[in-house]
Design a protein around this nucleic acid. Structure first.
Ligand SMILES: [Zn+2]
Ligand SMILES: [Zn+2]
Ligand SMILES: [Zn+2]
Ligand SMILES: [Zn+2]
Lengths: 149, 149
DNA sequence: CCAGCCGATGAGAACGGGTATCATTATCGC
DNA sequence: GCGATAATGATACCCGTTCTCATCGGCTGG
C-alpha cells in the first residue's frame, strides 16, 4: 500500500483536494477526531482543542465536520438529545450502532451481524434506495440498572 | 370492555386522571394527534389547529405532548433533522419504524418482524436493560430515485 | 523570495426548536 | 355562584447550530 495513511491523513488530503487550500483549524479538528473510535460532539471537540491552547473557532469545527460529512468521511450520529455527534467513517468492518443510557447518558457502541442482515434484507425488499441506517437502543446500563439490590 | 374508546378518548382520560382537570387546548391537541397514524411535529399540530380557528398556544401543544410521553401514550420519533415528532402509541401490533427520503423529505413507515426479532435478541444478550429502540432508514424514495429514466 | 489573490478562519450576530415564566382564564368541588 | 388551583397563551429565554464579515494566511505567478 503506497498510502499507508491514517484516517486523519486521508481525510485531510481529501478535504484539501476540494478547495486547493489547507488550514490549521481543519487539521487540528481532523487529527483530534481521528483519535476517536466513537461519536463526539462539535462542542466536545472545540473544548478539547481550546483546552490544549488552540485558537480554533467553533465555526471552523462545524465547517470541518460538514466537509467531512459531505465526503462521507464521518458518520453523523443522532442520539435524540438534540446534539449532533460525529465519528470517523472507517469502513464496514468498523460499522456499529449505539446504546444510550437514559439515566447517566453513557453511550456504548455495539455491532450485530444479525441486525445488519435484517436491515439489508429489508432495504433490498423495499421500493426505496436505502443508503444509510441508524439504530439507537435506549434503557439502563449495567451501572444504572437495579440500584436497589 | 366497558371503555370501547378510541386512542384519543383513552389518552384524554389518562391525562385528566393525573391532575383532576381538563382543558380545551389539551383536548384539541389529543383529538388531532389521534387522527394521525404516523409522526407529526408540534409545529404541524399547532399550525393545523390555528388554521381551523383554534387559539391554542404552542406551549400547550408541547405540554400536552410531554404529558402523553410521560404516560407512554405517544412515541417520540427523531428523524435526525432536529425536529421532534410524535405519534400515538397504539400498541405492539402498530409498532413500526421509518424510512426518510433525503431528497423530498417524505416519511414512510414500515414494519419488519425479522428486524424486531434481531433487536430483541440483541437486547436480551446485552448487559443493558433495553426498553426502547429506534431505527431510521435513509435514502431515496420511489419518486426521487432514478429521475433520469 | 515577494506580492497579492482568494479561500480559510474566528468572533460574534442571527436563527430556530424547545422550555420557562407569569399573568390570566377556566375548571371543579363546595 | 365562590374560591382554590390547574390549565392556558404570550412571550422571554436557552442553547446548539448556522450565517456574516473583517481579517488572516497558504498558495502561486512573477
Ligand atoms: Zn459510535
Ligand atoms: Zn447508565
Ligand atoms: Zn410512524
Ligand atoms: Zn423522495
Amino acid at each position: 500500500m503506497v498510502h499507508a495513511e491514517t484516517w486523519a491523513e486521508l481525510a485531510l488530503e481529501r478535504l484539501r483536494r476540494e478547495s486547493g487550500r489547507s488550514g490549521t483549524a481543519r487539521r487540528e479538528v481532523v487529527e483530534l477526531l481521528g483519535r476517536h473510535d466513537c461519536c463526539v460532539s462539535a462542542l466536545e471537540l472545540h473544548d478539547a482543542l481550546r483546552a490544549r491552547g488552540s485558537r480554533v473557532g467553533i465555526a471552523s469545527v462545524y465547517r470541518t465536520l460538514e466537509g467531512l460529512d459531505r465526503s462521507g468521511l464521518v458518520e453523523r450520529v443522532d442520539l435524540g438529545d438534540g446534539i449532533a455527534r460525529f465519528e470517523p467513517a472507517r469502513g464496514d468492518e468498523h460499522h456499529h450502532h449505539h446504546f444510550l443510557c437514559d439515566d447517566c447518558g453513557k453511550v456504548e457502541p455495539f455491532a450485530d451481524p444479525a441486525l445488519e442482515a435484517a436491515l439489508e434484507r429489508l432495504a433490498g425488499g423495499s421500493g426505496f434506495a436505502v443508503d444509510a441506517h441508524d439504530v439507537v437502543l435506549r434503557g439502563a446500563c449495567g451501572d444504572c440498572r437495579a440500584p436497589v439490590t
